[in-house]
Design a protein around this nucleic acid. Structure first.
Lengths: 212, 212
DNA sequence: TCATGTGAAGAGCTTCACAGCA
DNA sequence: TGCTGTGAAGCTCTTCACATGA
């Protein structure tokens, strides 16, 4: 394994994982790329190529063993044990993501939230405590946290990023509508919901109504 | 204009729009693709190509007039007047998105939320009322709603989709972790936050720790 | 001179067509 | 036979290099 994995392939792996979990729960032991295609909407060829990038996990003439493939994908992503993350910014969105994540995601666990507002510090969302930013490094080290969800306002985003990086976290899922400046080796994915929403409007409006 | 706009270009337009809004607020009248590159992280060439796809909006040797370019992008996206949307599913995530959107997005306006739970029907989140699903069509027609944010649980997603489509809405921003089946002409964008989060773990784990 | 606009080249991802193997 | 695995072709998007024009 020396080629680097295509970004879009990596983003599809958890989708396959989710389907495999459901299949295994229903005692399905074998699945073909054609059936996975029906479940996902991706083509069977694409699914085979995605998986084949990491190795030959299937059996010709038969398909993929669901449990075996699940284990392989867990290893590839790096989800082999419970992965701990933190939420930075305990506003409405941060709190909603904590509740949402806990109920929807059995692989990733939020260990703490951080905020600068004394009014929210000390609160518990489900069993997740909101702590002052100063405790981030201690928590990150204790729980081996490598990923942070960032939901602070734009103005505070860059300052929060410095603290996140100093805490040893190297992946940021950024919900603040601003560009983050990070050093080499830190990976940022932006999830700017307002901007996504605006781009969707494009597909709601017929071409005829647009003049430019 | 007969070629169809590249999807990735459309997704970047609101990013340019956001920056232009800030520049105009600070009385900046001219911006070059180089400066837009510094603000966005995209290359200057890419920004020029993105904009040039829709027309020649700049002045050679000078740059782009911020107000002029803003107007053009608004027209291209279809944001020429306040765009109304609805939220389907008034759980934690739906409520958080209503609060988040209202405070972050001056172009898009949530006119109503819908849910099946009698306990939340009648609630107001800011000034957005939670209504029974049966009222969706009426509201969609009254406010010319073309876009819905879908935040119901997976099991209810497909049923909700039928109602959304029957209400005349043709674009769905889907937060439910399930594949939606829609007819031709309906555009779905998935924002599965758990799955995005899982794919990020890949970038947090060093290659050395992975064996497959 | 300086920054836009644009063909051409390049990179990345998907689809095709079929070889390979249980 | 049936489904995986994979080079080759095709498509989409990005980068390059420079012609164009204020």
């Amino acid at each position: 394994m020396n080629k680097i994995a295509p970004k879009l392939v990596v983003r599809r792996l958890p989708i396959y994982l989710h389907i495999l979990d459901n299949l295994i729960r229903n005692d399905v032991q074998i699945i073909s790329s054609r059936e996975l295609s029906d479940e996902t909407g991706f083509t069977a060829e694409q699914i085979r190529k995605d998986l084949a990038f990491f190795g030959a996990f299937g059996t010709r003439g038969t398909g993929y063993n669901t449990s075996f493939l699940r284990e392989k994908i867990l290893k590839i992503i790096g989800l082999d044990d419970q992965t701990n993350i933190v939420v930075v910014g305990a506003g409405h969105l941060g709190i909603a993501l904590i509740r949402y994540n806990v109920t929807n995601n059995s692989y990733v666990n939020v260990v703490a939230a951080f905020d600068i507002d004394p009014d929210v510090i000390g609160l518990k969302i489900l069993d997740v405590e909101v702590m002052p930013m100063a405790r981030m490094k201690e928590i990150a080290e204790e729980y081996k946290v490598k990923v942070a969800i960032l939901t602070v306002p734009s103005e505070q985003a860059q300052i929060a990023v410095e603290q996140i990086i100093q805490s040893g976290i190297n992946v940021i899922f950024n919900f603040a509508p601003t560009k983050l400046h990070v050093p080499e080796g830190v990976y940022v994915r932006n999830a700017n919901l307002s901007i996504e929403l605006q781009s969707l409007i494009y597909y709601a409006t017929s071409e005829k109504e647009k003049k430019f």
